[in-house]
């Protein structure tokens, strides 16, 4: 009969109306500023710089190779290379950036800088609420603001960060093994060069 569908529909909305006061599962609303849904693991907003250890200046992975600066399509990265060197995670002396600025108002979140970085030094952050009242300087992020610890990286992209850590550890082990082998070879060589001298005498 005409109107049955309307009555069925009204029963449905009545169920919603009263049900929303009874069961919390019905209300899917997340009241944003107070509550937040954790960002998805693959989410990306803007780049940040990863550092190891407690001190961000000492632990910054960036070696100032400037590949990202050159590859950046909208040219939002500015890097100034240091004059001196500091040891990196394997102990090898490397340059470091004395200045590393990203203009987030220009950045288009394309992730190319992350893809080209050979040192796993720049990664994508998930923080998106960056509104500021400073129109010109507010979104120009310098080294201090960009540097985030490896633990933070683990907290936002756990799978990816674990892969990176494994790779870095492997490389470090390789370098150490190589150094060890080199040291052994040098020792052997020294021993060999020592023995003829001994024999010569």
């Amino acid at each position: 009969m005409l109107g049955e569908g309307i009555l069925k529909g009204m029963a449905e909305t009545a169920k919603n109306f009263f049900g929303s006061y009874v069961s919390k599962e019905r209300l899917t609303t997340v009241e944003y500023p107070e509550e937040r849904v954790p960002a998805a693991e693959n989410a990306r907003a803007f780049p940040f710089l990863v550092y190891d250890g407690p001190d961000w200046q000492a632990g910054l992975r960036c070696v100032s190779c400037q590949i990202c600066e050159k590859e950046c399509p909208p040219k939002c990265i500015l890097i100034e290379k240091s004059k001196d060197k500091k040891p990196d995670y394997v102990g090898k002396p490397q340059f470091y950036p004395v200045r590393f600025d990203i203009d987030l108002s220009v950045c288009m979140s394309c992730q190319i800088c992350v893809e080209v970085c050979p040192f796993d030094a720049i990664k994508m952050n998930t923080e998106f609420a960056l509104a500021t009242d400073d129109r010109f300087g507010g979104l120009l992020f310098s080294r201090e603001k960009l540097a985030k610890s490896n633990e933070y990286y683990h907290s936002i992209h756990p799978t990816e960060a674990a892969e990176v850590d494994a790779r870095l550890a492997e490389e470090k082990a390789k370098v150490e093994a190589k150094a060890k082998a080199a040291a052994e070879a040098a020792a052997a060589k020294a021993a060999v060069s020592a023995s003829p001298a001994e024999g010569g005498n």
Binding site: A14, N16, F17, R26, T29
Partner: peptide, 10 residues
């Protein structure tokens, strides 16, 4: 408020 509840909103 009522419409919201009918649509499972707040």
């Amino acid at each position: 408020k009522g419409l919201g509840r009918m649509q499972n909103r707040l």
